[in-house]
């Protein structure tokens, strides 16, 4: 990151394009900076400070919050359950993101191969799923998987020898996370598929024709021409999926609303919520949030560099 900031010192020269100093740009960014300070920087500062303080229920009622420095962090990091949740969240993130990318890329290739009319049908269907608000996604899926009247159990039971009516998909933690992962994949695939398809259409026809003339088969064209060209898009999409799938809170919370309660159904988002707003351990919650933040920054450092390069162009 530090190399990225220092690589372009010339753009920081205090002159306009006409070469004279002006205050105008500063006035233009003041409102945005102000709202970011109030809405994000201040809470972030609060979070950093209070992750190093004892801030529990008693402090809620006005007692002073003593400094404990890294006690909250060491307490969390030596708590086996916290690690369980971290590992669980990372596994959930990786599985969901990889499933989303795989299906998304396959659908993009399918769109490229299919005739225009069927491609438009598919794009419209994907768009409908993409447009669903999270809460509506969750209500619809909970209706689909409803134990008694859900269409999923009904359809599965049509298979010979299978009787799923009455099966509760959310009872077992593994099944619970599988359902969550399927819903999130369903909702995220459209963005990946449509973005990858857009990138694929930018590969020039001449290049594909040249490859064909040179005798490349479909698989070779895919591996040597198409994939290298869309690689930058794929990398960014994968990182976005990682970031988004690590921070699933709403979906997990809304699935928990349907019945399953307890630690076994938590990912990091709901865990922090429970720690802070649920139990009032704001100091501990702040340090847990800081750890999540570090994980996210670790995952996204590369993406940030890509975006900065784009700005430099």
């Amino acid at each position: 990151m530090s190399t990225a900031t220092t690589s372009m010192p010339d753009s920081d020269s205090p002159t306009t394009r006409r070469g004279r100093a002006t205050q105008l740009p500063y006035w233009l960014v003041v409102p945005a900076v102000a709202v970011l300070i109030v809405g994000l920087a201040y809470p972030m500062g609060w979070q950093i400070l209070n992750s190093m303080r004892e801030y529990g229920l008693r402090q809620q009622f006005g007692e002073a919050a003593p400094w404990v420095w890294f006690d909250n962090y060491t307490a969390l990091l030596s708590d086996g359950f916290f690690w369980t949740v971290v590992v669980r969240s990372l596994v959930f993130m990786a599985a969901t993101a990889l499933a989303t990318m795989t299906i998304g890329i396959l659908l993009a290739l399918l769109m490229k191969a299919a005739p225009t009319w069927s491609r438009l049908v598919l794009q419209t269907a994907l768009l409908l799923a993409w447009a669903m608000p999270i809460v509506a996604q969750m209500t619809v899926w909970s209706w689909l998987i409803d134990a008694r009247n859900g269409v999923l159990n009904y359809t599965l039971s049509l298979l010979p020898g299978v009787d799923m009516v009455g099966h509760n998909w959310l009872e077992q933690p593994l099944s619970f996370f599988f359902v969550a992962s399927v819903i999130i994949t369903w909702a995220s695939v459209p963005f990946v598929a449509i973005s990858v398809y857009a990138a694929l259409t930018q590969v020039s026809e001449e290049m594909l024709e040249a490859a064909q003339l040179d005798g490349a088969n479909a698989r070779q064209t895919l591996i040597y021409i198409l994939m290298p060209t869309v690689r930058p898009v794929l990398i960014i999409l994968l990182l976005l999926q990682f970031i988004w799938d690590l921070r699933v809170y709403a979906q997990i919370q809304l699935l928990q609303d349907l019945g399953p309660k307890g630690d076994d159904y938590d990912l990091l988002g709901t865990y922090i919520y429970g720690l802070g707003i649920g139990q009032g351990h704001f100091g501990a919650a702040a340090s847990a949030a800081m750890i999540v933040l570090l994980i996210t920054l670790g995952v996204s450092g590369f993406y940030v560099r890509e975006l900065l390069r784009e700005d430099a162009n």
Partner: peptide, 9 residues
């Protein structure tokens, strides 16, 4: 990049 979930507390 900030996860809202790490900030909302």
């Amino acid at each position: 990049m900030l996860p809202a979930e790490a900030m909302f507390i």
